[in-house]
Computed example of a mutant assay.
Amino acid sequence: MPDLPKELTLPEGFVPPDVPENPVTPKDAATVVLARDSADGLEVFLLRRVMGMAFAGGMTVFPGGGVDRRDADVSNWAGPEPAWWAERFGCDVPLARALVCAAVRETFEESGVLLAGPDGDSVVSDAEPFHGVRQDLVDRKISLAGFLADAGLVLRADLLSPWANWVTPEAEPRRYDTRFFLAALPDGQRADGVTSEAVDADWQRPSEAIADWKHGRRGLLPPTWMTLAELAECTGLSDAMTRERTVDKIIPKVVRDGNVVRVVLPGDPAYAGAAGHLDAGPDDELELE
């Protein structure tokens, strides 16, 4: 795992000056790194979230969101069974099933890419005929299970690969236990980024996205930066999709470093001595950037 750069500080307001004494219980979530090969190398699909959103406003992220337990009612499933995913992500089988379904749903909602097909050996080559239900999925008027059943489609769990598991630090008021997946853009499909949660969307090489962050053109949170850095080491899509990875739960901590706040990971010398959350006294002035 690459080292987080010390310049990667948390954005202003991300950690409140007055942190609750009891950390918030993280909500289960799924994030999908949608990738493709290009003439210039591996590219990933990135969204810039709307400013002012309750979580990660203005930041560049991958498609993703919270688990809707109704999704897990999917009856037509192809690929590794939920028990396999449960072992990889270190969770129970029902949650593993819901996480995979959330990954497929969030990818469709936020990029228009549908990881499903008429049967277990095919995937839709054009997802646009199904785009009319995207907002209904966002509004929870219909579940992924209901949508796939009505459309006669099979969920393709085999198009996903487990990548990582990040938990929001205890200091933050909105916390997520997020499992990261990697998925290849299916042939014929197009990622459009038509979502109310993003102001723009684009494909970019991981190294270029990190360069944009260095020059202040993108805001990145530690899990996104780390994923981009890891993917920048891959020679292409096949290399990334077939890499053997041990998915350990990564629980960062936040530390005050001068007058900024940054994240430290297990293995960092500052991690062992860091509190689970910041304890800002009444006379402490916490400045973030």
Rank of each mutant, 00 (worst) to 15 (best):
L231V: 07
G90N: 10
P186H: 07
V255S: 05
A54S: 14
F181W: 11
R97W: 03
E106G: 08
A30Y: 01
V32H: 00
V104M: 06
Q189T: 04
T195Y: 00
V44L: 10
W203C: 07
L144I: 00
D284M: 12
A116G: 11
D177S: 13
V260S: 12
D200Y: 01
A270I: 00
G276Q: 13
V264C: 04
T235F: 09
F14Q: 11
T168S: 15
A83N: 09
P169F: 05
D73Y: 07
R245W: 08
P2M: 01
L42W: 04
D257N: 10
G188V: 02
I142C: 13
F108V: 00
S125F: 01
T178K: 08
V50S: 04
D284Q: 13
S143W: 03
D212V: 00
P23M: 09
A145G: 10
A274M: 07
F55G: 02
D283T: 03
L182V: 14
G281R: 15
E289W: 09
D212M: 07
T227C: 15
V260L: 09
T9N: 11
P16W: 05
W225L: 04
A171C: 10
A127G: 08
A191P: 03
A127L: 03
I210E: 00
H131Y: 08
V264M: 08
Q135A: 12
A201M: 06
A191N: 04
S196K: 11
P82R: 04
E233I: 01
R217T: 01
S122F: 10
A116F: 13
R36F: 00
Q204M: 14
L4Y: 02
G258L: 06
V263T: 07
G188C: 06
A229L: 06
K141C: 14
T9S: 13
F14R: 10
M226G: 01
V167R: 11
V133Y: 00
D283F: 15
S38D: 12
P2F: 00
T242G: 05
P80L: 08
M226E: 06
G236N: 14
I210C: 02
G267T: 07
G276E: 15
F62R: 09
A98L: 08
P169W: 02
R256F: 13
R156F: 12
L160H: 03
V32G: 02
V67E: 06
R97Q: 07
E244D: 15
A72H: 03
D73N: 12
L278K: 06
S238K: 12
D139S: 14
T242I: 04
E106D: 02
G219P: 02
V33K: 03
A183D: 05
E244Q: 13
E197W: 12
A229P: 04
D239S: 14
F181S: 01
L99W: 01
V100L: 09
E233C: 05
K27P: 01
L155S: 07
V263Q: 13
D202G: 08
G41S: 15
D248H: 15
V255Q: 02
V261K: 02
T31S: 14
C91S: 09
G58E: 09
V124K: 00
E109T: 05
V32D: 03
V154R: 09
E208V: 15
P186V: 05
L148T: 07
D68I: 06
